[in-house]
Write a protein that binds this DNA or RNA. Structure first.
Lengths: 396, 396
DNA sequence: CAGCAATAGTTCATCCGTACAACAAATCCT
DNA sequence: AGGATTTGTTGTACGGATGAACTATTGCTG
């Protein structure tokens, strides 16, 4: 009755071995987290481990290709110069895959966060053939993997980002309305058998990409491509929900008497702040380009400006509910919203803070996403590398 | 950049000592979780620890008063009879305190989950004096503590449940609208200095009380007293949000053109499914008793029945949004909603499942709360004991 | 009822990983 | 040049888990 959460490791017996694993992780994290390179002595001081212990752990991480020693550089003070430790470039890599409405692609990131390779194929994938596309993406990924392994990099795994409801347990794609896909098991179609591939919703992986920048540990992420996607990040960790379906903000009720939505309900957020709704309200064709809308806005055209007001108010209302329910202090606007930020930010912030009960005590900050295009691909690769860091013992 | 969450312990060096702590926890949990008493050998089999290890750990837990050995009872098979291990009664206890709109009280629970002592004082605390009430509650708690210690029980700590916005970091009560309190630091007012007291919102602690029963590991909890409170439980753990203000479902927008709410916005859930709104819609005085409403409903009176329809639809809509954002498969209705369950459950379930995008793949279950009155007090005491179990090393 | 099989719990030598202290290495300062 | 200072390494000690052997206590069987 008094038992709380069983984290993956918490119901497993702790052996001597576990100490090593945990301290390996601790040391690796210390180096990866630090803005400047650390020495063994620095790590010892930060972690509280003995210098001797840190030394053996670091040696192991270096041998395993997770860390690299730089040339010792004399400090401005007395004493033996320290050996700077940094994440190892181009040894272990993670792969991010994505199918979106107008492109598919793959990116390879190494432990330094550098893009080792990236390939993107543009197209129009509205109502597309899942088997064909995923096979193509699989081939693309396979060529990247081969290239990596030729250069003696170890591929830690891959994450596939899809714009739909993905079951986090089984990896099944329940439905991706904008692709016209449903009931698909995407992993086998990629044909990357020996490599572990995990599937997730693209908004969630895009949110992970924000963690590379200067973002608070907890935030809500909202993005618009064709649909509206959302994600919850708590303490730098994705909050997926029971089955990976959290953050579905697109169909929050704005007005029970509002326009009919594709989902069957009335007055969903998507009918106010979705891309199509936005374009229509701005007096432009549904599939107009975002750049055209931005241009019209900069030109000061009234219909587009009014459309943004409506969208911002709706978005703010939905996000206000979101914050009331989840309580995080920051909202990050990504995708199309990041581009339209100048016309959204203040209005959204006002609407949110109007609705959030706790706002008087701690106002909610609204900001734009830092990660650029292909954020989901990047975030996916990052997630793979986060897993490596969470259990470095597997890789040394 | 690839760093994920730092749980309280995860950035601390693991020493030999940590092994002991973790395995103590593991063994304690195994015994506490098991429906039937376990032997040392059973625990060893379940945890994967060696029998020798389990023996020393169990000895320590028994010596520390967390576990008790029952009389060996011969099994129906060959072999030396096992010594059954069970949670120790009346050794270590947790205290739950609560101030609510019509009562204040304290309860003492031991590790078996039994109520050791409980005291409740009824009253009308709408717009009450915080200092006086908390002083009174403190005195009441002190007498319970004294009584416990006279009987050689160790008091592990206390949780104070308040119907308002509590800052989980500092323990400050920002505002409790129905008590008429704001900007209060409640802990010093209790005057229980040496004992650690943690403050939390009462809906959240009431949700914890549900964990004693047969409830799925993740659920949303909604309760109505005067205001509407909510909580998120994920994997048997309270999800508090960044500052402890999660689950504030009472002011989710139901209709932007709806009635004006005390919070300043329009069409909040509280205006449809709050106790006062409900009574008014039923044609009864705002402060009518719940039993009267239930009786009217059982008598089949039309106005009350219609009121329930409206409330259920609103509640379902808000909960639908909630589930879309947080993704859990179960909703538990507590407080007044538990009593009104027969007139709420089906309507709420239909409304939720109408709105939840993922419902076709996994319908949302709506159920009533199992914990009775004073659920927050009970949940608070349970939380204290959960902390004991999370770190038994501190108590042996 | 004696002897054997089976199961629970304990004892002890061993292994593994961290800690501490002493030491070697490499620099700055005077 | 020599002391001070800091880094990294080496070797011994210690704490905790382990597995095998051992004791304790039962049921089963002839």
């Amino acid at each position: 009755m008094f038992t709380d959460s069983h984290s993956p490791t918490s119901h497993v017996a702790a052996r001597q071995h576990s100490l090593r694993e945990r301290n390996l992780e601790l040391v690796a994290r210390a180096v990866f987290d630090s803005p400047a390179p650390l020495s063994r002595a620095d790590v010892a001081a930060m972690t509280g481990l003995a210098r001797a212990t840190v030394s053996t752990l670091v040696d192991r991480l270096v041998a395993g290709g997770l860390l690299t020693e730089l040339e010792p550089v004399a400090a401005a003070r007395a004493g033996r110069p320290a050996v700077p430790l940094v994440p190892a470039p181009r040894t272990v890599v993670g792969i991010g895959l994505e199918v979106n409405i107008d492109y598919l692609g793959a990116t390879v990131l190494d432990l330094t966060g550098a893009v080792v390779e990236e390939k993107v194929v543009r197209g129009q994938f509205h109502n597309s053939d899942a088997v064909a596309l995923l096979t193509e993406l699989g081939r693309l990924a396979a060529s990247l993997i081969e290239s990596c392994e030729r250069d003696e990099m170890r591929v830690a795994g891959a994450r596939l980002a899809l714009p739909g409801l993905v079951d986090s347990g089984t990896g099944l794609l329940r439905v991706a309305p904008n692709l016209g896909w449903q009931g698909i098991d995407p992993v086998p179609l990629l044909g990357l058998d020996p490599k572990p591939v995990v599937v997730a919703n693209n908004a969630k992986l895009a949110a992970v990409a924000e963690l590379a920048g200067d973002v608070p540990p907890s935030f809500l992420y909202v993005t618009a491509n064709v649909g509206i996607g959302g994600a919850v990040v708590v303490d730098r960790q994705l909050f997926l929900g029971e089955r990976g379906w959290s953050g579905e903000i697109g169909h929050v009720v704005i007005d029970p008497n509002g326009p009919l939505c594709g989902c069957g309900a009335r007055g969903c957020l998507e009918q106010y702040a979705g891309k199509a709704a936005l374009m229509r309200a701005a007096g432009m064709p549904d599939d107009a380009r975002l750049a055209d809308l931005a241009q019209a806005l900069m030109a000061g055209e009234t219909a587009p400006l009014a459309a943004m007001q409506v969208a911002a108010a709706a978005l703010g209302s939905a996000l206000g509910d979101f914050v009331n329910l989840v309580d995080v202090g920051t909202v990050v606007l990504g995708g199309a919203y990041a581009i339209l930020l100048p016309w959204l930010r203040d209005e959204v912030a006002i609407a949110i803070n109007d609705r959030v009960l706790a706002a008087p005590y701690a106002p909610i900050e609204v900001r734009g996403a830092a990660a650029g295009s292909y954020a989901a691909m990047t975030g996916g690769a990052m997630e793979v590398l986060r897993d490596v860091l969470a259990d470095p013992a597997r890789w040394v």
